[in-house]
Design a protein around this nucleic acid. Structure first.
Length: 287
DNA sequence: TAACAGGGTTATC
DNA sequence: GATAACCCTGTT
């Protein structure tokens, strides 16, 4: 079992391999769109307002995270859960087992609600590359710039915009970020959240039971541009409702070809969302 | 090189 | 249940 140790002024996750937490897969599997890998093989990205630098080694993960930020780091990467124990123990059907073997190392992140909601609002009828361009553009225009230095190298990034700042943007400003028809959805989202920040309520439902999951989906679907698929993505990647099972065209294809058009999620216990991500990753990255 | 199709969906007829 | 809303990319 891994441990969080001090490594000079920073912390490192010790005794952890790619089988448990694989940064490449986790940060590039379509759940988050703002992380980038630099020329030294470090993953660079923002956790709230902190610019994080992470590097995977064979038996540990190196970070620039200080002790006082430890808890939110553990929380973001769901390091508090051992996937090899939990998922490895499930009695999986053949296809699910195959996708698990291929995709293991993916952790489901706990992303901030506002960021995930905006991100997946941008995802409808869109490609990963476009989504990436849009959220980066939004961050550069409306997010706070953050700089840091690690091992003699300077890093610059932008925090995801706050609701307050994004709400100042006009429809035209938003359209400059190349989001097309989704600009209307985003404008409407910001306006409604400014009157009554419903997402703060949903924060209280993070990791919740099925009742709270249903409430989360119902609430999210009240916004323009959020249907069942997008709501489930947000519930899974921000709300950490691991039972959420977003069905896009790829997942529908898998259900049709591998499960005869209907899939029984109960066999995955409370972890169907994780299995969904394994299947999605398998389909996206094998050909 | 220009033209075109289609993509991780939703809202609205 | 069909259709259109946009920007980008790959293909021809």
């Amino acid at each position: 079992m891994h441990k969080i140790l001090k490594d000079g002024q920073y912390i490192k996750i010790d005794n952890i391999t790619k089988n448990e937490l694989d940064l490449d897969k986790t940060l590039d599997c379509g759940q988050a769109f703002r992380w980038r890998k630099d020329s030294d093989g470090c993953w660079v990205g923002m956790i709230k307002n902190n610019l994080c630098i992470l590097k995977q080694h064979e038996n540990y993960i190196e970070t620039n995270i200080t002790e006082d930020k430890k808890d939110e780091f553990i929380n973001y990467f769901n390091i508090d859960m051992c996937y090899e124990d939990e998922i490895g123990k499930l009695d999986l059907d053949t296809y699910a087992r195959k996708t698990y073997e291929f995709s293991k190392g993916i952790h489901i992140l706990r992303q901030p609600y506002f960021e995930a909601t905006v991100t997946f609002l941008m995802s409808s009828c869109n490609t990963m590359r476009n989504i990436r361009n849009i959220v980066n553009s939004l961050s550069e225009k409306f997010g706070e710039q953050v700089e840091t230095e690690y091992k003699g190298k300077k890093y610059v990034d932008y925090a995801f915009p706050t609701l307050e700042n994004l709400n100042k943007a006009s429809l035209f400003d938003l359209q400059l970020c190349k989001m097309g028809f989704r600009a209307d959805y985003l404008k409407s989202l910001c306006e409604r959240l400014s009157e009554n920040n419903i997402l703060e309520q949903l924060e209280k439902y993070v990791n919740g039971d099925t009742g709270k999951y249903r409430m989360t989906i119902k609430t999210l679907r009240m916004f323009k541009g959020i249907g069942d698929k997008v709501a489930n993505c947000i519930a899974l990647f921000a709300g950490h409702h691991l039972c959420a099972f977003p069905i896009d065209t790829h997942m529908q294809q898998i259900i049709d070809t591998e499960y005869g058009g209907k899939i029984d999620l109960s066999k995955y216990k409370e972890y169907s969302g994780i299995i969904q991500q394994y299947m999605f990753y398998y389909k996206a990255f094998t050909k």
